[in-house]
């Protein structure tokens, strides 16, 4: 079981829910279970450039991307840029 946190601008698209608990082997497997998965993963199955995904604080782009295994990971965090000031 891994906790997935998504930013509020995506939570708005998920009916206001910002935290999910999912069972998955990989980062991609976890993200595909989210109601906002199409906003995270494009039609080619790649992570969209507008979001960053971190496993326990480490950017998955520097690991194995969507194939990064979740064994031993407690938190998956999705982050997107916000502009407000």
């Amino acid at each position: 079981m891994v906790v997935v946190r998504i930013p509020s601008l995506l939570a708005v698209q998920a009916g206001g829910q910002g935290t999910f608990e999912v069972e998955a082997e990989t980062v991609g497997g976890a993200l595909r279970q989210l109601p906002v998965s199409d906003l995270l993963i494009d039609e080619h199955g790649e992570l969209r450039r507008l979001v960053n995904v971190y496993v326990d604080g480490e950017d998955t782009r520097g690991l194995e991307g969507l194939e990064t295994p979740l064994a031993g990971v407690s938190e998956l965090r999705v982050i997107a840029a916000v502009a407000g000031g």
Binding site: P7, S8, L9, I79, A81, V82, A83, G84, G85
Partner: peptide, 9 residues
Amino acid sequence: GSIFRFEGQ
């Protein structure tokens, strides 16, 4: 620094 609703970076 950037903000949205209840979240900041």
